[in-house]
Simulated assay, not measured.
Amino acid sequence: MTSGTTEAPTVEDLVEGVTRWCAAFSAGHLERDARARFPHEQWAQVCRSDLLRLPFDPDRGGLGRDLVTTMRVLEALGRGCRDGGLSFSVCTSMVSVGVPVQRFGTDAQRARYLTGICSGELIGAHAITEPDGGSDALAMRTTGRRDGDDFILNGGKAFVTNGPVADVIVVYARTHPDGGPLGTTAFLVDRDTPGLVVGPPIAKMGLRTSPFSELSLEDCRVPADRVLGRVGSGFLVLDHVLKWEVLCSFAISLGEMRHRLARCVEYAGRRAQFGRPIGEYQAVSHQIVELKVGAETTAKWLYDTAAKVLRGEPVTTDLAITKLVAGEANLASAMTAVRLFGGNGYTTEFGLEKDLRDAVAGTIYSGTSEIQRNRVAAMLGVGR
Rank of each mutant, 00 (worst) to 15 (best):
R375T: 14
L302V: 07
V46Q: 01
A173D: 12
L331P: 11
L54F: 07
L196E: 05
P39Y: 11
I123N: 03
A361R: 03
D304S: 15
L86D: 02
D219C: 05
G343D: 14
E16I: 15
L77P: 01
V376H: 04
V338Y: 00
R208E: 05
Q287F: 11
D355I: 02
S87E: 12
G64T: 03
S119A: 04
D149H: 15
P277R: 14
R373K: 13
A334K: 03
E130P: 05
T336W: 04
D13G: 12
V160E: 01
G269A: 12
T316V: 13
R339N: 14
L242R: 15
V198C: 03
P223T: 01
F56T: 01
A173T: 09
A306Q: 01
A186C: 06
R258G: 06
L114W: 01
P194R: 08
G383Q: 03
L291Q: 12
G124Q: 10
C22T: 09
V95P: 05
N374S: 09
F250A: 13
C264Q: 10
I169W: 01
T305C: 11
T368V: 03
T348C: 08
A111S: 10
G84D: 05
I371G: 10
E121A: 14
P9Y: 00
T19I: 12
D83A: 10
I278R: 15
I278H: 13
